[in-house]
Nucleic acid binder design. Structure first.
Lengths: 126, 126
DNA sequence: ACCTCACGGTCTGAAAATTAGACCAAGTAT
DNA sequence: ATACTTGGTCTAATTTTCAGACCGTGAGGT
């Protein structure tokens, strides 16, 4: 019995980073944006692409991304229905800093794994 | 009745981005890293800095960040105890792509707010 | 002597987010 | 008839997060 039909509270954060992080600072958003980078995809294609996201979270996160202007949703009223998701110019502009992040991840992944191993070794010295 | 005392499962994701995103792709990690960018901070200083994080999440997230090699934790066994958190070289190297992201957020925050307003206007056309 | 405060957490029970999986409509293929 | 497809939504169970109580130790106030 929520009064808000599924469109969250929409608090205006005075701090831009917080505001952006609230929406973007989660696994699924980043992953969806990355999946959409090469081009338009339909709902189920995104599901397959991301593979361990639930329908609900995909649906929800897509809605948020659409609301915030990162993607567009186009419904072709065929049967069965076809729905295509595409990055907007804003969404594409976001890709740039994001690719930096992905590149960083690629480069430093090994360091993280190494740090974890070290940490675990230390812990195991009872 | 978890066997792991509070140190999560440590799955080795074959995909570096996923692996990094699992830890970094959440509000608190990013916010903590940003808070530590200017320099070392103690636990309660971080609390004040971030302001709406709970002790538990701060503690947990710091532990993860330490484990993954982004920060170091130094305990000075005084009374009351003093614990300092500092970025490692790995952590500092992460700052670079992250600043890009923050800059993007600053630049495009207005676009997002505008998109939301547009979206809401459309929704209200019943 | 006694009370209170500070610090850096941990623990608990309640609240919120996420998950898996059932379900839906309507047309097409078998 | 039956089964399958798409893009979701709904529900119940699980997991995560939260707010707030609690902890020990020593210093400082009264």
């Amino acid at each position: 019995m929520t009064m808000v039909p599924d469109g969250e509270e929409m608090l205006e954060q005075p701090c831009p980073i917080r505001d952006v992080l609230d929406r973007i600072g989660n696994q699924w958003s980043l992953l969806i944006l990355e999946a959409l980078a090469p081009g338009t995809l339909r709902f189920n294609a995104l599901m397959r692409e991301i593979d361990d996201i639930s329908k609900q979270m995909l649906s929800r996160t897509l809605k948020q991304l659409e609301r915030d202007g990162f993607i567009t949703r186009t419904l072709y009223p065929e049967v069965p229905p076809r729905v295509e998701y595409t990055l907007t110019p804003l969404g594409r502009s976001f890709l740039e800093p994001m690719q930096q992040l992905v590149a960083w991840a690629d480069t430093h992944h090994g360091d993280i794994v190494a740090a974890r191993t070290r940490y675990q070794a230390l812990q195991e010295q009872t």
